[in-house]
Nucleic acid binder design. Sequence first.
DNA 1: ACCTGAACACCGTTCAAGT
DNA 2: ACCTGAACACCGTTCAAGT
Lengths: 182, 182
Amino acid sequence: MLLEAVRTIHAEGAAALTLRGVGDRLGVSRTALYRHFTDKQALLDEVAAEGFRMLRRALVEAWGDGGRAGFDAMGVAYVHFAVTHPSHYRVMFGGAAEKRQPRPESDDDDSTEAFQVLVDAIVAEQAANRVRRDDPQALALYIWAMVHGVAMLTLDGLLPPPTTAEALAGLAIARLHDGIDR
Amino acid sequence: MLLEAVRTIHAEGAAALTLRGVGDRLGVSRTALYRHFTDKQALLDEVAAEGFRMLRRALVEAWGDGGRAGFDAMGVAYVHFAVTHPSHYRVMFGGAAEKRQPRPESDDDDSTEAFQVLVDAIVAEQAANRVRRDDPQALALYIWAMVHGVAMLTLDGLLPPPTTAEALAGLAIARLHDGIDR
DNA sequence: ACCTGAACACCGTTCAAGT
DNA sequence: ACCTGAACACCGTTCAAGT
C-alpha cells in the first residue's frame, strides 16, 4: 500500500508510480486499491504526508541541543533531505497542492508540524538574543522559502557545474544570518 | 504551434496540455505536430524557454536605472511573474529538467540569460559599494534560490492565509539585505 | 519546419458481479 | 480500509501511406 508506493517512487520516480504497478507488486488487482484510496491523488497525498513526517524527524534531529550550530544544521539537513529523496520531495511540493483539497480544516497536518519545528527553533534563538525579534512565523516562512529554493534549484539541475548543493546551502545559511549588504 | 501551447497552459494548466488538443485547435492531426517537435517534452522545453525570455524582459524592466530601488524591484518582479503565470512558471521549473537533455553544450540558453540579468545587477551594486564583494555568481544563485522559494511556496498554496506573496516577497528582500541576526 | 488514419501500448476510473 | 474482470475514455507515439 503506502509503503509500496513510497518504495516505487524512491526507486523509479514519481512519474513511474502507476496504480497498476502498485497493484501488481502487491499481488492484487488495480481496482482493489480503490478500497484504500479514493483516488490516485489521495495516494500521492499520503505519500507527501509521510515525506513531511520524515522531514520533521530529520529537522528535529539536526536541531539537537539548539543554538546557532543546531540552527544551521537544520538548514543543511533540510537540503540534504531533498537531495537524498528527490522524487519524494517533489511529490511533497511540485504542485500536488495545486489540485489538493483546500485543506479539510486540518491546521495540524504533517507539513505544518514540520514547519513548526523551524518556528520553535526561531523562538528559541530569539530568546537567546541571537535572532532579531520579528514575527517568528514570518521569519520561518522566509527561511523555509530560502532552503526550499536551494533544494528545488538543485533538484532541477540548475546549479552551474562547479557548485554543489552543500556549498550553496552553506553560503545561503551564512548570508541568511548577516545579509548581502556591505 | 508554440503560441497555441502557451495559450493552453495559461488557460487550463500544464496538465491539460495534450498534443491532440493542440492539434485540434490548430486544425491539424496530432501526428502532424511531430514535424515540428520531436517529442512532447521538446514542446514543453520550448514553452519553458519562452517563459525564461518573458521573465528576462520583466527583470530587465524592473531593474531600470538600477540602484537599490531597481534591485529590490527585480525581486518583486520575479515573484510577480511567477504568481501571474503560475502554470508557465511550473513548466519552466518543476522537474522538466529532470528528464531534459543534459544541456546540448548551450551555456547561453534562455534560463542562463535571465540569470545573467541578476548577476549583472549584483556586479553593478558591488561597484556602487552597496553589496558585499562575494563571488557575484554565487550571490546571484543565493538570491535566485530565495525568490524561487518564495514563488514556489506561493504557487503551492503553502502561505498561511493572512500572508500574501507580496508581503512575503517584501520581507524576504528586506532580510536579504541585512540578514536575520540581531 | 508535410499531413493523415489506423494501430499500439499504456493510463486512471467505473461498474456489475462475486466472496 | 473486500476483490475481480471487462469496459470506457483518455493518453503519447509509431508507421505505412498519401500530397
